[in-house]
Nucleic acid binder design. Structure first.
Length: 418
RNA sequence: GUGGACGUGGCGAAGCGGUUAACGCACCGGAUUGUGGCUCCGGCAUACGUGGGUUCGAAUCCCAUCGUUCACCCCA
């Protein structure tokens, strides 16, 4: 039997909900624009290598979550699982490194990852994100973080905290990794199966494992923040200093790891405190090696990405209700065929003049049409029967005060604009 | 990929082995033939996710499957 249901992990945003979506998207564009970020629109699919190289082929995303297919020309393409790699590719391909640096960009749109659905996790989900390419200045890190904070406040969201960390550069990270492995080696066999495999894959993650995180030997493990090289350490201190100056509250979380290979130095997450297991609403950091990895010059970058769906989970009920309402300026009520003919012309007139209006096409009775006007929260009902047609007028009824007046078609727009 | 919970009309929700599967909301109409939001009356719909099995009899029990959901992993 044919399956006409939507694929697992996808969602339909029905009209009742699209109001909030539009509101959040508009806010995002507004704030990004305020900070002088400009939109970058890239394809929804890219050559698979972009993500393999960019995101890192040891990551979960690349190993098991990509929607990869072969097109008719035999190319391997992949639906984008995140936004940064595509933006960087476009930056390089468009030779934007030849222009004014740093370049500041933002994007907004769907991403795809083959994962099992959960609260706040979808296979097709929407991200907004920003990137600053070409600046190594810690002030750029701070701006990116402060922007995210500003954006959340602008949406009236307050139940979140900002976690901050530095994951160092390839040099100090590998030094630390060596220390860490030596420290944990004696207890390797006591760790959970997940952590056993993390030993090779991503030892940093053992530190915040839900099972082994409390193990005494794990608690005393060397922290990355105590083993940063001098440059990384100076950079990290500067970022913290700038955030303090800007009044952005954060907590240092040395156990925080980011899942994508390209991160260097600054890493941060905004975590919703009233969400389920998938609680990161915005995540980001610095990626100094990525641009050259994708064939561009050796330029540094910082940015973040946030999930629309998770953000919407934190938007408060009241605002959501308000944005869901179905509203009309005027509802036209017609009685009889002659009235209908006249009514559609009135409707056209209203709409040409920017008045949001509608009428019934389902053959409802007069009473039912009035009920409809009510349901659509129409400010006025315009009643048209044989009398009105004859006088080329409409009976204008204020739905709140219930006051009525006969208005000629010539005066209608003027009266309604009052 | 792993584990738990759940799948009854458009939505919510009873029923948990026996005959017409409650009820509420929504929707449509009437009381009120050109005046709404309340009230009352009436109407409405191929509802037991799907496929097998047990039984004289299954929405109710068993198995499988699909889907939803929560959590792990991971991440937005």
């Amino acid at each position: 039997m044919a399956d006409f249901s939507r694929p697992p992990g996808t969602m339909d945003v029905l009209p009742e909900k699209s109001g909030v979506w539009q509101w959040v998207e508009a806010k995002a564009r507004e704030v990004f624009d305020l900070y002088h970020y400009r939109e970058m629109r890239t394809p929804i699919f890219e050559h698979t290598e972009i993500f393999e190289r960019g995101v890192g082929d040891t990551t979960d995303i690349v190993q098991k979550e990509m929607y990869t297919f072969t097109d008719r020309g035999g190319r391997s393409l992949t639906l984008r699982p995140e936004g940064t790699a595509g933006v960087v590719r476009a930056f390089v391909e468009g030779k934007l490194y030849g222009g004014t640096l740093p370049g500041k960009y933002y994007y907004l749109g769907p991403m795809f990852r083959y994962e099992k659905k959960q609260a706040g996790r979808y296979r097709q989900f929407n991200q907004y994100g920003i990137e600053v390419i070409g600046s190594d200045n810690p002030r750029a890190d701070a701006e990116v973080i402060e922007l995210a904070d500003h954006f959340l406040k602008e949406l009236g969201i307050s139940h979140y905290r900002l976690e901050l960390n530095s994951v160092g550069c390839p040099t100090c990270r590998s030094d630390h990794k060596k220390l860490l492995l030596e420290h944990l080696a004696p207890i390797k066999n006591e760790l959970c199966p997940d952590c056993q495999s993390r030993f090779e894959k991503n030892p940093l993650r053992i530190l915040d494992c839900k099972i082994d995180g409390h193990h005494p030997q794990v608690l005393t493990a060397p922290k990355i923040t105590d083993h940063l090289c001098e440059d990384c350490s100076t950079h990290f201190d500067a970022v913290k200093g700038h955030l303090n100056a800007l009044g952005v509250a954060y907590v240092i979380t040395p156990t925080m790891v980011r899942g994508l290979d390209y991160y260097t130095r600054t890493a941060f997450e905004f975590i919703g405190t009233e969400l389920g297991a998938q609680s990161t609403i915005i995540g980001g950091g610095r990626y100094n090696g990525l641009i050259s990895m994708l064939g561009g010059p050796d330029l540094p970058g910082v940015g973040f990405a946030g999930g629309l769906e998770r953000l919407l989970l934190t938007v408060d009920e009241a605002r959501e209700q308000e944005l869901a309402a179905d509203r009309l300026d005027a509802f036209v009520i017609a009685m009889g065929d002659a009235a209908m003919d006249f009514s559609v012309k009135v409707l056209q007139l209203l709409r040409k003049n920017g008045i949001r209006a509608d009428m019934d096409y389902a053959g409802r009775t007069f009473r039912a049409q009035l009920k409809l006007a009510d349901r659509y929260h129409a400010k006025v009902a315009l009643i048209i029967g044989d009398d009105e047609v004859e006088k080329q007028s409409v009976t204008l009824r204020d739905t709140t005060s219930k006051e009525q007046q006969l208005v000629s078609i010539e005066e209608l727009i003027t009266v309604l604009h009052k």
